[in-house]
C-alpha cells in the first residue's frame, strides 16, 4: 500500500549546487545542504497493493519527483508518506535499504553501471540481497534471454544500443520480483514490439501482485492499455482515477 498525505518536496542542495529532479550536481559534495524551492505541493492519494497506475502529466509537472519519492531517492519535506505499509517519512534511515530492495525502478536514462557487464548489472539487486550465486546465474540468464540479450551477457552498457540498454535496465528492475515497480518513460527507447512485450511483462507482474506505476508521455501506449492514472500538473495532483 502506498499513501501520500499532504506531501510536499523541496530538493536539498549543497552550497552552490544546481538542483535537478535527477539529483544535485554539487561542486564539492561535502558541504551542508540547504533547502530549495518546493517542487511538489500537497500530494494526497492512496494506492492499494497490487494496482496498476499510469503517471501522466506534461514535462515539468513533477512526475520524476513523485517517482523519486516512491523509490526513496528523496524523503518528503513535509506530510506523511507510507510505502509498502511503512511510514518512510519517520522511519530511521537504516530501515530504508530493506524497503528499497522491495522496489524496482526503470530510469529514463537507464542508470546502468558502465564498468560492469550487463550480466552483473542485472545481477546486482540479487547480489545485494545475498542470493546464492548459482541461483543468480540461472535467474539472470533466463531474464536476459527473455529480453533478447542472451548473447550479449558479457557486453558493457556502452557497447549496446539505447533500446538494448533500456531492456537491461528493465531486467535489472524486475529481477528481484519487487513488490513495487516504478518506471519513468520505460518505452522511450523501444520499438513497438519491444514496448508491447514490456507492457505484457508489467501486466504479468501486476497480475502476480506487484504494484506498478508507469510515468509516460506516450499517449498511444496509454490508449492501447487503458487504466487508472495519477495526473500531475505544476507539482500538484490534478486527477486520480
Amino acid at each position: 500500500m502506498i499513501r501520500f498525505e499532504s506531501v510536499g518536496l523541496s530538493y536539498q542542495a549543497a552550497g552552490g549546487a544546481r538542483v535537478t529532479p535527477h539529483g544535485t550536481s554539487s561542486r564539492g559534495g561535502w558541504s551542508e545542504p540547504r533547502a530549495g524551492p518546493e517542487v511538489l505541493h500537497d500530494i494526497d492519494f492512496t494506492l492499494p497493493a497490487g494496482v496498476f497506475r499510469w503517471l501522466l502529466g506534461p514535462s515539468g509537472a513533477g512526475k520524476t519527483s513523485l517517482l523519486r519519492l516512491m523509490y526513496l531517492a528523496e524523503r518528503p519535506s513535509r506530510g506523511r508518506l507510507t510505502l509498502l505499509g511503512i511510514r518512510v517519512d519517520t522511519a530511521p534511515r537504516k530501515a530504508l535499504p530493506a524497503i528499497r530492495r522491495r522496489i524496482g525502478f526503470v530510469f529514463q536514462d537507464f542508470r546502468l553501471l558502465p564498468h560492469l557487464p550487463i550480466f552483473d548489472n542485472v545481477a546486482l539487486p540479487l547480489r545485494l540481497a545475498g542470493r546464492p550465486e548459482d541461483q543468480i546465474r540461472a535467474d539472470v540468464t533466463e531474464l536476459l534471454g527473455w529480453v533478447g540479450l542472451a548473447r550479449r551477457t558479457g557486453a558493457r552498457p556502452a557497447e549496446l544500443s539505447g533500446g538494448e540498454q533500456q531492456r537491461v535496465a528493465i531486467a535489472r528492475a524486475v529481477i528481484a520480483r519487487p513488490n513495487l515497480l516504478l518506471a519513468d518513460e520505460p518505452t522511450g527507447n523501444l520499438d513497438d514490439t519491444q514496448a508491447e512485450r514490456l507492457m505484457r511483462l508489467f501486466q504479468e507482474l501486476n497480475r502476480l501482485g506487484t504494484t506498478v506505476v508507469v510515468a509516460t508521455h506516450n499517449e498511444a501506449l496509454v490508449a492501447r492499455h487503458p487504466g487508472a492514472a495519477l495526473r500531475l500538473d505544476h507539482g500538484r495532483l490534478t486527477g486520480h482515477g
Binding site: G130, I136, A176
Partner: peptide
C-alpha cells in the same frame, strides 16, 4: 515473492560493483 535477506552483501569473490 521470495524473501529478501536483511543484510545485503556481494557474494562473488572480487566482484567490483
Amino acid at each position: 515473492m521470495r524473501t529478501v535477506s536483511p543484510r545485503p552483501r556481494g557474494r562473488r569473490a572480487g566482484f567490483d560493483g
